[in-house]
Structures are given as C-alpha cells and as structure tokens.
C-alpha cells in the first residue's frame, strides 16, 4: 500500500508545471525514502531529476517499492482540479494499475477523489556521476528566468561564462548581440536576492535557450536557483522545493564544431 499526504497540494501543482513541457510521461518511483523521478526529454538533451523526501510529507507510507508510470498531461488535468490550499493524498495499492488522488478543502467541506490509470513505462535509469563543479552560482530564480527570456530573443544559444568577477550571459543572432553580467552581491539583507559564486576555475559553456526556458518553469518553486558548471559536462539547474526536496535539470552543452 502506498499513501502520501501533503497539506500543500500547491507544491505538486508547481512540480507538474515544472516538468510537463519537457516530459510527456514519467515514472514516479516510490520507496520508504520518498518519491523520485528521473527522465530525459525525448531528444535526450536534457534530464529532469525530482526528489521528494518522505519526511517532507505530513503522512507517508510505502510498504513496498512502487513504480508508477504516469502520463503527465493527465496528472496535470487532475492537479488543476485541486485548490491551492487543498490537502492532497496520493494512494495506490501494491502492484496497482491505477493511483487515486484525494483533495480535501481546508474546511473539510469539499472532498474530491480522482482515479487515474497508470502506464507501463520502460525504466531507463541513467547513472549521473558525482561531480565537483568548477563553478557554482546561486542567484534569484526570477532573475535567472528573466535573463533566459530576454536573451532567447537574440539567439538560440546562451553562453554562460563564470569568472571570479562574476557571471556573464551572452547571446548573438540576426538582430545583434546581448550581454548580461551579474556581479557577486556584497552584503544583502535578504539572502533570496543574493548572487553568490563559488569558483574553482573559470568556465564558459554554450547552451540552448529553449531548454533553459523550460527549466525556468520551476521558478515558482523556489526564490533562488543554483547553476553548477564544469568544462564540457552538462549544466545543472537546481531549485529547492521547500523543506521536502528539490528538482534538478541537467542540460548537455553545445560544442563548437
């Protein structure tokens, strides 16, 4: 029997918004440590890794490991039926072929349940090597979303260059070129607005704007975003999800031919 109860169903609504444009379907792996999802987009250029820890749920029970193949468009429809303040419970029997979502309104006057069929998806788990990144940049997530949106008007690619002075985002194309430089913030009273850079050695990599703009759909999940970069390895874009977990996006770089 699997049962997970979350007082803030808005977290799940935001998680679905953060992955549904990149992935059509995905397997939610449930175990006693929590819910994990790892899936590449159809072009194998990007990968989503979601982790929701069991201790972040208000109630969590997972008697036996359960892999639920889910069509994300269907799950998005169900999550749209939930109010932001509803309490959400996911329930599935062992080796079930369906999962039930229950939503309770805060005053318990409205109780809804939606049963969704599960899919048989073949699992393709990738080994992601632990990496000691040359540059780790923390910045406001809204700022990063704005930069990706603005620069994607100038070209298909963004060059992210990180030195000890700061981080520069550049794009060029038919209409011209654009550069946005962020310096490390000295002392900010609100850490959510800080820009911090840990640099072992400088790095400059090129990435497709399209995928970065998919990743920034996760912006509502966290006020800050963390970019990790090393030469010639995929970029990691990480958003914390409250106290319950994180969503990590990996993006393969573009290389000069």
């Amino acid at each position: 029997m699997f049962e997970a109860r979350l007082v803030q169903s808005s977290i799940f609504k935001k998680v679905l918004e953060a992955i549904k444009e990149l992935l059509n379907e995905a397997t939610f792996d449930c175990s006693d440590s929590g819910i994990q999802l790892q899936a590449m987009d159809s072009s194998h250029v990007s990968l989503v890794s979601l982790n929701l820890r069991s201790d972040g749920f208000d109630q969590y029970r997972c008697d036996r490991n359960l892999s639920m193949g889910i069509n994300l468009a269907s799950m998005t429809k169900i999550m749209k039926c939930a109010g932001n303040d509803d309490i959400m419970t996911m329930k599935a029997q062992d080796n079930a072929d369906s999962v039930t979502f229950m939503f309770e309104s805060p005053n318990q006057e409205k109780m809804s349940d939606y049963e969704m069929k599960l899919m048989n998806l073949d699992q393709e788990h990738l080994g992601i090597p632990e990496t000691d990144y040359s540059c780790v940049i923390k910045l406001p997530s809204a700022e990063f979303a704005r930069i990706c949106r603005d620069l994607s008007q100038f070209g298909e690619s963004v060059v992210i260059s990180c030195t000890k002075e700061g981080v520069k985002f550049s794009a060029a194309g038919d209409i011209g070129s654009a550069n946005i430089k962020l310096a490390q913030t000295a002392n900010v009273d609100k850490e959510d607005e800080a820009v911090s850079i840990e640099m072992q050695e400088k790095v400059s990599l090129t990435f497709a704007c399209r995928y970065l703009n998919y990743f920034t759909k996760a912006t509502p999940l966290s006020p800050q975003v963390c970019l990790s970069m090393s030469a010639e390895v995929p970029l990691v874009v990480e958003y914390k999800i409250g106290e319950i977990g994180h969503i990590r996006y990996y993006l393969a770089p573009k290389i000069e031919e």
Partner: peptide
C-alpha cells in the same frame, strides 16, 4: 556553428 550534444555521451545507462 555549434553542435548540440546528447546526455547519453555523458551519463551511462545503468
């Protein structure tokens, strides 16, 4: 021009 790499060349299938 620049060529888009695939994640398969960085992450190995388990």
């Amino acid at each position: 021009s620049s060529k888009q790499m695939k994640l398969d060349s960085f992450f190995n299938k388990k």
